[in-house]
Design a protein around this nucleic acid. Structure first.
Lengths: 118, 118
DNA sequence: ATAACATCTTCGAGTAACTCGAAGGCAAAT
DNA sequence: ATTTGCCTTCGAGTTACTCGAAGATGTTAT
């Protein structure tokens, strides 16, 4: 059972961002303790990790929210959720190629600078 | 010599975004034709490609602008420019690892969905 | 020649996803 | 008892787009 500050370290997102996500309804299973503080269990943390991955593949928060809620609806939403994940998987693979290109590009730039350094 | 529309296809950025960049001063060497239309030569396109790469490694537009202008100042700014590029190169390598992790994560999710599909 | 169309321009408003700081509540430590 | 530290909510500000409207200009069709 972790606090906002603790999960912010675990998932590497700012405390502000984590509160923003909970308030937007992206982690609907989150509970509060007797002092009204957010408490994160393993399910919440797993959800946050999924949110982060989907966000980083460019999925808008509204669509991520939809995915989480479809998941909570159960088996009947299997097909649509599967399609959503496959789509992001394709995007992730494309992003990987682009990341490789950027590394190449900057590696060449660095090499160029170093060749000019007398 | 290309128009906004043409470069938008070459570098895969929207026409709006390209105008936004020129108006922000990120492509200071850009010229206008007799009808006041933006015209992009090879140098402009090279600059745009560099801008896109730096932006995708998370550099803010203001800092990219600074880099471009330092470049135009010549040799005296060599060291600072070199440091800026090395920094983004390190970030690009980190992003590559993260992109790999996302592909792995989503690949596993897809596999999980497919194992449950009867 | 004139009308229609495409493509360019500027401008201002709107949006997503943070990002920050202030003001205040509660609980343990000195 | 008060200071420290972490939590809360709220509202404002920022970045980087993103969009659409209104208008100038140049090209093509009749």
């Amino acid at each position: 059972m972790l606090t906002v500050k603790e999960v912010s370290k675990v998932v590497d997102l700012s405390e502000h961002t984590i509160r923003y996500y909970t308030d937007k309804g992206l982690i609907p299973m989150i509970k509060r303790d007797k002092n009204n503080n957010r408490v994160f269990d393993d399910e919440c943390i797993g959800t946050l990790i999924t949110i982060k991955c989907l966000k980083d593949t460019g999925m808008p928060l509204d669509e991520i929210k939809k995915y989480i809620h479809l998941y909570l609806e159960g088996e009947s939403t299997f097909d649509i959720r599967y399609k959503m994940i496959v789509k992001q998987y394709e995007i992730a693979k494309k992003q990987l190629l682009e990341a490789e290109d950027r590394v190449e590009f900057l590696k060449n730039k660095v090499a160029l600078y170093e060749s000019q350094h007398k």
